[in-house]
């Protein structure tokens, strides 16, 4: 039995009929065609699906879409694009060589964004802790940490 909900995503309102057990990730990807949040494990283990819910990072695979009603959802598409200009974290990930296969990248940028939104000059410990819920298999995280430091230095 589908349920009618209103989702606020990247500043736009969407009226949708969703299944009660449909995850926020499924709705973002399949119904709103936002490819930034990725399905890596669908069980809250990899962080590829990370988005912001009311400004806090969340695994969108672990949240029902119906539970996201009335809350402000932000995906990577909402923080910067070639058309609107990149967020400093997006530019720093390019400059620092923090992108390899890139499948984890959008989720990690969302995790890092929450950190930089709350801590202006984070320590390396804080940076590593902030992305500890996001797995990357290509980079060993070294250049990801560099990128977050680079973005933090630009405030």
């Amino acid at each position: 039995m589908q349920k009618l909900i209103t989702l606020q995503v990247n500043g736009e309102r969407h009226e949708l009929a969703v299944e009660p057990d449909e995850s926020l990730l499924q709705v973002l990807r399949n119904r709103l065609e936002l490819v930034g949040p990725k399905k890596g494990c669908d069980s809250g283990g990899c962080g590829c699906c990370s988005v912001h819910v009311d400004g806090r990072v969340a695994y969108s695979c672990m949240m029902y879409a119906v539970g996201a009603e009335g809350r402000e959802i932000t995906t990577i598409e909402g923080i910067g694009s070639p058309a609107t200009g990149l967020h400093r974290l997006q530019q720093a990930f390019i400059d620092a060589g923090a992108v390899q296969c890139g499948y984890c990248t959008c989720g990690i940028i969302m995790a890092a964004k929450q950190l930089l939104d709350t801590v202006k000059q984070p320590s390396e410990d804080q940076i590593r802790l902030a992305i500890a819920g996001n797995l990357c298999r290509c980079t060993g995280y070294a250049k990801i940490v560099d990128a977050i430091k680079l973005a933090a230095a630009q405030t």
Partner: peptide, 9 residues
């Protein structure tokens, strides 16, 4: 490929 990957992929 980095620009595409940091903006959605």
């Amino acid at each position: 490929d980095a620009l595409d990957k940091v903006t959605g992929g």
